[in-house]
Design a protein around this nucleic acid. Structure first.
Lengths: 272, 272
DNA sequence: TGAATAGTGTCTGTGAGACAATATTAT
DNA sequence: ATAATATTGTCTCACAGACACTATTCA
């Protein structure tokens, strides 16, 4: 059939001509949490954490997964992500970035489902514990070597882990292909989403200001350094860290005292 | 309805429960082409180029677009990309990287269509002009300032351009939100895909080895430098370039002569 | 007073930017 | 001889890693 105009074509278009697929939006919500500290002198330990949801339906009943849901026809995947985020954490206007689209044919046992994944960064102080009933923050411990990434997740009452192998993609120095080696408690291909997000965030710490999305308005440089250290999984040298961060922060007249040691000046994020 | 096992659940699962969407895979195929040169002494000019296809159907009849097509239920988006790539260029085993998933609700006038975009890098010498009839390579001229990106496309017989505005995303130093300001000849939101790809490739040149996917097996450092310059859109200093690239290339005993000037040693890519 | 963190000074090595100098060819 | 590119040398400056040192608090 021939058409003489775009209007005419569109009027006659049969949208069922091509196969359609289900599409979901899954969100990796990262935060840094304060741990407890017995010694009054010491700083609170910090934990790099991720929000998981316990599945109470099949498939993967009773396993944990990332918050997510189907995208409907009148919203974008990022709008869907925001909607889900609001549902789970009651937070709006938070940092959100598209991560990757996972679409292995059998990643979901029900049917072909494509997942557009997002990474969200939140400041845990803004949460007020208003997260949904079946959701829970898990502290992550990440051990990475040349071949594998080993992640342990712990929410205080449940603790489990997974391992993925990484292989460098040909003609690349930065892209890895990940394969799940061990995983008993996470649903779908979510271990892959988590390691992709960790990798992305680690890189972004070095050349962007995203970290400030996880910080309160006022913070000490020690706290900020702790956040970097817990995400990067390594200790940083104080003078070097201060030099690098200096241009991004602004001194305030607030001071944090009470720690049995020299008080520290509080800073805030300085936009360029 | 309650199920007692995952098997039972899956057996009864109704896959039409959620709305489904059409999903396409669009590919940004980049290459660097040799221009012509009248002065026998001078090097061939090089052009950063992209493969476009002329649409011979509605919507956007007679406009140009990126090669792409619907993903069917038994292939992944990257498999679809490879299939389309093979169709258009007759090339296999080429570098392919997922770029971004574009899913504005009205990006396609027919219906809601999500596009998972890919970036492919090819060495034009491998092509032997076996591209499909309605496809054509366009040389790109990219002018970028703080607010806008201006791209001119020229395939020798047709020449047009588009302009997109960029605004820095809050709390970020590297992510821009792009909006098309001017575009008469490209279909869909493909100007956005192109600028996203250019931006990604520029960044990747600095910290990966992707450039070698666009190079023949043997090349001179001058040629390699030209490729960098034409993609980055700026001149580089010879000694600095050689220092940076030194660890990635390997000298061979081949030499390129005939240029009315000192012959240059040919190098090849050195894998780590 | 001592444990603990806050914050600064400075040495050193690496590496990029800049520019100058030399090498080699085809016409 | 000359125009053009190829290739190397080297100076300087910026900056990150490393380590040492001083400052300040509170049980």
């Amino acid at each position: 059939m021939e058409y003489n105009s775009e209007e005419e074509f569109l009027k006659n278009y049969d949208s069922s001509m091509f196969e359609k697929l289900s599409v979901t939006s899954d969100i990796l919500i990262f935060s840094v949490a304060d741990g407890v500290q017995d010694n009054y002198r010491k700083l609170n330990e910090k934990h790099f954490s991720v929000l998981l949801v316990k599945r109470d339906n099949y498939p993967f009943k009773d396993k944990w997964c990332l918050p997510g849901g189907f995208i409907n026809t009148i919203e974008t995947s990022s709008e869907a992500a925001k909607r889900i985020l609001k549902n789970e954490t009651n937070l709006e206007n938070i940092y959100l970035e598209q991560l990757y689209t996972f679409d292995e044919v059998n990643r979901d046992p029900r049917m072909r489902i494509i997942s557009v994944s997002y990474m969200a960064l939140v400041d845990k102080n803004k949460l007020f514990k208003k997260i949904s009933d079946n959701a829970s923050w898990f502290n992550m411990t990440i051990l990475e070597d040349e071949q594998t990434i080993n992640v342990t997740l712990d929410n205080g009452s449940v603790k489990f882990g997974f391992v993925v192998a990484k292989t460098l993609i040909e003609h690349t120095t930065d892209r890895y292909h990940y394969t799940v080696i061990k995983n008993d408690n996470l649903a779908f291909d979510h271990p892959l989403v988590i390691v992709s997000g960790i990798s992305r965030l680690k890189n972004k710490l070095e050349y962007t200001d995203v970290v400030f999305n996880m910080m309160p308005e006022y913070f000490t440089l020690g706290e900020l350094q702790q956040v970097y250290e817990v995400i990067l999984g390594k200790k940083l040298l104080d003078p070097a860290f201060r030099r690098i961060i200096a241009s991004k922060v602004e001194k305030t007249d607030k001071v944090k005292t009470g720690g049995g040691h020299r008080p520290s000046v509080m800073f805030k994020y300085k936009r360029k």
